[in-house]
Amino acid sequence: MPDINIIREHFPNNIIEAGKLDASFNIIEVLSFLKNCPELSFDMLLSIIAIDYIHYNELIYCLLSTHLNESIKVSVKMKNEAKSVTAIYKSAYFDECEIYDLFGIKFTGNPNLKRLLLPQSWAGHPLKKDYILNDERLKWNE
């Protein structure tokens, strides 16, 4: 974990729990601060992880600072709509398209949100917990 005090000073209302910085209400501000702050300089967005908790969804942004060789996780909890971070980290584009494809989460501000892995005509979002497994082959060991 990097120098937490700098983050605490700038964002006193954001909670850090279980090694993750919660930024559900100000993700854009937090990420642009983490990227541009010279003491932290988290210049790489490794990945965005989405998890469906049925009542809400969580996104975990994994950031890496190549200068300090440190990483941090920023989490966002929301229903079905999140803010796109492609303006801060270009690599977020594919991640956001994939999450839209598999979870149906819409990213406002993404330049061209479309299905990435599945065919454009696919119905439903398979990684959601309420997705019906209509393929018999998946049920063989249940």
């Binding site: 210049d43 790489m44 967005l45 490794l46 990945s47 190549t66 980290y89 270009k90 690599s91």
Partner: peptide
């Protein structure tokens, strides 16, 4: 390379 999140030998 960093803003497109390249890693490994490419980075």
């Amino acid at each position: 390379a960093t803003e497109w999140a390249l890693t490994g030998p490419n980075l």
